[in-house]
Amino acid sequence: MYKIIKKENLAKNIDRFYIKALLIARKAGAGQFVVIRINERGERIPLTIADYSRDKGIISLVSMRVGKTTALLSSLKKGDAIMDIVGPLGNASEIKNFGKVICVGGGVGIAAILPIVRELKEAGNYVISIIGARSKGLLILKKSMEQTSDELYVCSDDGSMGYHGFVTNFLKEYLEKNTGSKKSKKTAIARVIAVGPAPMMASVAKVTRPFNLKTIVSLNSIMVDGTGMCGSCRVEVGGKTKFVCVDGPEFDAHDVNFDLLLSRQKVYCSHEKECMGIYEKQCKLR
């Protein structure tokens, strides 16, 4: 059992949990994830490690309430425990001094990009962060991102905060403005790292491709074991089948078949609805 020692509400339906997990905290790196199972009948889902404190033995996870498992998670309080957590899984982000790096975070993906920004900064990079959400009330971790990044740009789909539009629109404009010469399409940016919903990452890849700009995305596919055993998370990268859990989760965005990723993410849509419907009914009865 893994005890929740603190819970914070970051935005509507988005919570941050601080969890005692000594061994995982000791090994965790930016970009890695854990697989959790909440109770005996629960499913196993992957969640990115949002933060970790090695000496305190604590990891933090950020989760948005979307289906039954995340709803169950959000119903847990300080002092409750999660039955199983295993990790850290997947490969850690490649952290080097690249120079100038743009980090793009969308929705809950901001929680995953934050530790990457921090480690990039520690490695001596100049980090420009672009974060966005549907509206002001749904934007998370703005303050932490501000403190960690050299430049921070905030976007909202409805214009209630910062730039009115998607992070990808802003990114496109930013790259166009900051490109040395229009012809060579060269930019001073060394790489882009994007974490967010799959459509956002697909669109980031589309934006950066004409600039020939190395772009890394962290893929969020469906998993069961998270250790390469089942192949549920398989994606196509550069025409080859890869397992997100062990070969990723980060891949070169320009090689990823996003259509396949998006399609495979929807395999259990009807099951999820059914499960959530039953759960909500049960909650009401209580």
Partner: peptide, 13 residues
């Protein structure tokens, strides 16, 4: 392992 044959009593589809 995940008892998906008992879905939706168990959560794994």
């Amino acid at each position: 392992l995940m008892k998906a044959y008992k879905f939706p009593e168990c959560d794994t589809p």
